[in-house]
Design a protein around this nucleic acid. Structure first.
Length: 570
RNA sequence: GUGCUUGUAGCUCAGUGGAUAGAGCAUUUGUCUACGGAACAAAGGGCCGGGGGUUCGAAUCCCUCCAAGCACACCA
């Protein structure tokens, strides 16, 4: 099924061309055509306001331009009427017969309903979650998980071939602390005396480590009591990844690739990246930034020198250290190498889902990619504002290390996978999200997610009833379908445009609102349009049954795009 | 202090250049006992943070002020 927006756009463009070659309109370049549904349905199904915008360009009155365009509009099977309204709007009305025929089209489209060709033949990658394996996923991460996965689903619906990637670092100090913490828990599990580390922030106190330690003690006895932290880190890391993946699977998320930052060191990418920057004269060795005054330079003359990336050449506010004075790389270098690696894998589009605290980091990475001649504009970021947990009206503080935070698993246990997905999706990424735990628990009967799924359930109920009556509604005369049902069909037909818009603007939250609107339109109808009952003609029943089949198709598709389940009963 | 983000109904939020600014919750009032009511209908509730500007037209773009969140390391 084609996009009605695109179809109307094509009509306008054709009409303007025709009018211009006929001399009815002067020659001018038409700005991009934007078609929108008017906010009042009685005005029509779609509207074009461009005649107002080009009035100056054409040197004519908007209303005259609109009328001229309308006169030259080619006919189309989906169009019933075109009306021109003051001060220069062109309103389109869909053809009712055509709309009725769409019921069958929707059913046939099935899980491809609303698919568009925006990304046809292109490859996209979405990188999300990307938590280091130091603990279970907490709620802060889960927002990005949902948004990233939904983005991936929408990209697929838009025709992209999509890969989901998880980037992680299992080296570094935090992992060492994890190993040490695990070792302590292991010794405790054996009943051996141990001293807890005194230094702040070096000990992971979460319950999960105790569990891992008990398992390890059960498996290995006391054979590891003299082993170093590395063994424990390996064990904990492996367990942690199993745990993380299980959690993600509960909310229907699966990554195709787990990419280890370390591999970029192992295959020489990191050092190659540094060399490439050096070759371009974008690296300098100094104790402080070269932009500092001589005075500052003199003061810091004894500071061991580091290697700096001239990111200011690309618009950064200051240069960044890429190699510390001790010879170790900062995060910047492997991150640039990673993004060059991703671009090198031939993706047309890279989407990174990041917390808003990573904004600066991401900028620097982009400068680095630019510096190396990579196509930085293929990289898009969805920057997520934080999730704030509210319990009893107060903010709950989260900390991975103390272990007193809400995990995603807890949240799923308290609500449901579907509720978690919906609630974390139904908000613009750049707004902060307050997740009221009490509300989430209490709201299980009240949550919009159930409202949407209930629409699907109701369809399923009707189809069950039809089956019980052995009624198939074959050969239905769709002209018996009333006007109200058709307005639901109209809404279904905008799904493709919704998908395009979400993908072009990287706004997966839109589908959540669309789903709710669609459910609302559905419930209204359901109340009035029974399929079976006294006084309902069999022909009418047949038409309505088809309609509800189409509705069910639409809800299955929309729920699928949001990664939510489609229960036949609730 | 600098950069990014946010400010829309009592609350939580959609809407980013078009016609009379929307939804859910809450409040008030009805429908109805169904192909499962986790439903439907109706009402009230808004100087779209303040001020200025651009435009035929601004919640939407620009400037400025106010308020909130995040980031500003030789941490990752």
């Amino acid at each position: 099924m084609e996009s009605l927006l695109n179809a109307h756009t094509a009509l306008i463009e054709a009409a303007v061309r025709a009018a211009q070659s006929a001399g009815d309109l002067p020659a001018f370049t038409l700005p991009p055509v934007e078609i929108k549904p008017p906010n009042r349905p009685e005005m029509g199904d779609y509207a074009y306001a461009g005649a107002l915008a080009v009035a100056k360009l054409a040197g004519m009155k908007p209303i005259d331009i609109a009328q001229t365009i309308a006169k030259h509009l080619p006919s189309a099977p989906f169009l019933a009427a075109v009306e021109v309204a003051m001060p220069g709007f062109i309103n389109f009305r869909l053809d009712v017969t055509w709309l009725r025929a769409q019921v069958a089209e929707i059913i046939n489209a099935g899980d491809n309903l609303g698919a568009v060709t925006l990304g046809k033949g292109k490859r996209a990658q979405v990188e999300f979650v990307s938590a280091n394996p130091t603990g279970p996923l907490h709620i802060g991460r889960s927002r990005g998980a949902i948004v990233g996965d939904t983005m991936a689903r929408l990209l697929q619906a838009a025709g992209y071939i999509v890969e989901r990637e998880y980037y992680f670092n299992n080296a570094g100090m935090q992992m060492r602390h994890l190993g040490n913490s695990m070792r302590i828990r292991y010794l405790q599990a054996l009943g051996l005396p141990v001293e807890l580390p005194k230094e702040e922030g070096t000990f992971y106190q979460g319950e999960y480590l105790k569990e891992f330690a008990e398992q390890l003690a059960a498996e290995k006895g006391d054979s590891l009591k003299d082993a170093g932290w590395e063994v424990f880190k390996e064990y904990a890391e492996k367990k942690m990844f199993v745990m993380i993946r299980q959690t993600l699977e509960r909310i229907h998320i699966q990554h195709d690739i787990f990419f280890n930052e370390n591999s970029l060191y192992d295959d020489g990418s990191v050092s190659a990246t540094l060399e490439a920057l050096q070759e371009r004269d974008l690296i300098y060795v100094a104790s402080v930034r070269e932009s500092e005054s001589d005075e500052v330079k003199a003061q810091n003359a004894k500071t061991p020198p580091a290697q700096w990336f001239r990111s200011t050449r690309f618009g950064d506010s200051e240069d960044r250290v890429v190699l510390k004075s001790d010879g170790a790389a900062t995060y910047t270098l492997p991150d640039i190498a990673y993004h060059m690696n991703k671009l090198g894998r031939g993706f047309d589009l890279l989407v990174n889902v990041l917390g808003s605290d990573h904004y600066t980091e991401h900028q620097v990475v982009k400068y680095g990619v630019q510096a190396l001649g990579g196509e930085a504009d293929r990289i898009h970021v969805i920057l997520m504002q934080f999730v704030r947990l509210i319990r009893e009206g107060k903010e709950v503080k989260m900390s991975t290390r103390r272990g007193d935070y809400e995990t995603l698993d807890d949240l799923i246990d308290q609500t449901s996978p579907d509720a978690v997905r919906y609630m974390l999706l139904a908000r613009n990424a750049n707004s902060r999200l307050d997740f009221d735990l009490d509300l989430a628990v209490r709201q299980t009967t009240d949550n919009p997610v159930y409202y949407i799924q209930y629409a699907y359930v109701r369809c399923a109920g009707i189809l069950r009833e039809a089956e019980a009556r052995s009624f198939t509604g074959e050969g239905a005369d769709m002209s018996l379908l009333d006007e109200e049902s058709l307005s639901f069909i109209r809404r279904v037909l905008t799904l493709g445009d919704e998908i395009s818009h979400s993908v072009l603007n990287f706004e997966p939250h839109r589908i959540a609102f669309y789903a709710h609107e669609l459910a609302s339109a559905f419930h209204t109808l359901y109340d009035r349009l029974r399929v079976f009952g006294d006084g309902i003609d069999e022909d009418v029943a047949a038409a309505r049954l088809h309609f509800y089949r189409a509705a069910q198709t639409a809800f299955r598709r929309v729920l699928g795009l949001m990664g939510m389940s489609t229960p036949d009963r609730m």
